[in-house]
C-alpha cells in the first residue's frame, strides 16, 4: 500500500486536499476510519480485507466537511456510494479526490464521476446466491409465519440507529424518526416501532441502496436488515430493469415510466 501512502502524502503536502479519509488500525484486530490532516501521519494508512466500513458516509457529514477538501480511500463499495451521492447531487467532482482501490489492491485515480461509472461497469452489483436463497426461503413461508419470523428478528432492535449512521445514503440532516410532531415512529424499542422503522429505512433506500452492507455490519444485534434492501434491489431489477447508479439518470423512485407494469391494481 506504499502507492496509496505516497499519494496521500503528496496530496496533503501540496495542499490539494486538507484531509485524507482512509482506513487505519483499530482496537484489537479491527480497522477503523482515520482522518489524516498531516503528511507525516499518512504512514498509518492501511488497506486489507478487514476494511469493510463504507467511508463514503463521512463525505456528507458536517464535521468532516468542516475539515476542508477530502481525499477518500475508495474500494468498490465506496465508489458505488460516491457515484450514488453524485447522482443525488450531494457531491461535485471538485469536492473531493478519489483514491480508488481495485480488488487487486491497486491504486486507481478517477478524474471524473463518469470514469468511476465506466470502471464500475465491470463490477455490477450482484446479489450473492446465498442471500438469494435466504430471501427465497423467507418468501416461501406462509404469510403469518413470515410475519412472526420478522417480528422475532426485529425484536432485539433498540433503535440505536447505527444502521442509519453507517449508511452513506442516509444523509438527511433531520430524519423522519426525529420528527415528534407527530411522532411517526415510537422511539422506544417497541415491536410495532421496530417494524415501522425498518420498513421506512428500507423504503427510503429503495432504488438507491448500493448493497454495501454497511447497515448490517454496523448493527450491534446482528439483525439481517440487509436482506430487506437486497430483496428490494431484486425487485427493482425485476420491475424496472438493470440497476446501478449512473450520473444523469434519476433514481428508480424519483422517476417513472408510463408503461410500468404491475398486476395488482384494479
Amino acid at each position: 500500500m506504499n502507492e496509496l501512502i505516497q499519494k496521500a502524502k503528496s496530496l496533503l503536502e501540496s495542499d490539494t486536499v486538507q484531509v485524507v479519509i482512509g482506513y487505519g488500525k483499530g482496537s484489537a484486530d479491527k480497522t477503523r476510519a482515520i482522518f489524516l490532516t498531516k503528511p507525516e501521519d499518512c504512514d498509518q494508512l492501511l488497506f486489507d480485507s478487514r476494511c469493510v466500513q463504507n467511508l463514503a458516509v463521512y463525505l456528507t457529514k458536517h464535521e468532516i466537511k468542516h475539515l476542508g477538501k477530502p481525499a477518500i480511500v475508495a474500494p468498490i463499495p465506496v465508489l458505488r456510494s460516491i457515484l450514488q451521492l453524485a447522482v443525488e447531487n450531494q457531491l461535485k467532482e471538485s469536492d473531493l479526490v478519489i483514491l480508488g482501490v481495485s480488488p487487486e489492491s491497486k491504486l486507481i485515480e478517477f478524474d471524473s464521476f463518469g470514469a468511476i461509472e465506466l470502471f464500475l461497469n465491470a463490477y455490477k452489483i450482484q446479489i450473492d446466491e446465498k442471500y438469494k436463497a435466504t430471501i427465497d426461503k423467507i418468501k416461501a413461508m406462509p404469510v403469518s409465519e413470515r410475519f412472526a419470523f420478522w417480528i422475532k428478528e426485529l425484536e432485539p432492535c433498540f433503535k440505536c440507529y447505527a444502521c442509519r449512521a453507517a449508511c452513506p445514503l442516509c444523509y438527511c440532516p433531520k430524519c423522519t424518526v426525529e420528527n415528534n410532531q407527530p411522532q411517526w415512529i415510537p422511539a422506544a424499542s417497541h415491536l410495532l416501532g421496530n417494524l415501522e422503522w425498518h420498513v421506512m429505512r428500507a423504503m427510503h433506500l429503495a432504488g438507491r441502496c448500493t448493497d454495501c452492507e454497511a447497515c448490517y455490519n454496523a448493527c450491534p444485534m446482528g439483525i439481517p436488515i440487509h436482506l430487506l434492501t437486497k430483496s428490494m434491489l431484486q425487485d427493482v431489477e425485476e420491475h424496472f430493469g438493470p440497476y446501478g447508479p449512473s450520473v444523469g439518470k434519476r433514481n428508480t423512485l424519483s422517476s417513472f415510466n408510463p408503461d410500468d407494469k404491475e398486476s395488482f391494481i384494479r
Binding site: 418468501k139 420498513v199 423504503m203 429503495a206 428490494m232 425487485d235 427493482v236 420491475h239 391494481i265
Partner: peptide, 12 residues
C-alpha cells in the same frame, strides 16, 4: 406501490 408491496410481502 410496486416496491412497497414487494417489501411488505417479504416482511409477511
Amino acid at each position: 406501490w410496486i416496491m412497497f408491496r414487494g417489501l411488505l410481502d417479504l416482511l409477511g
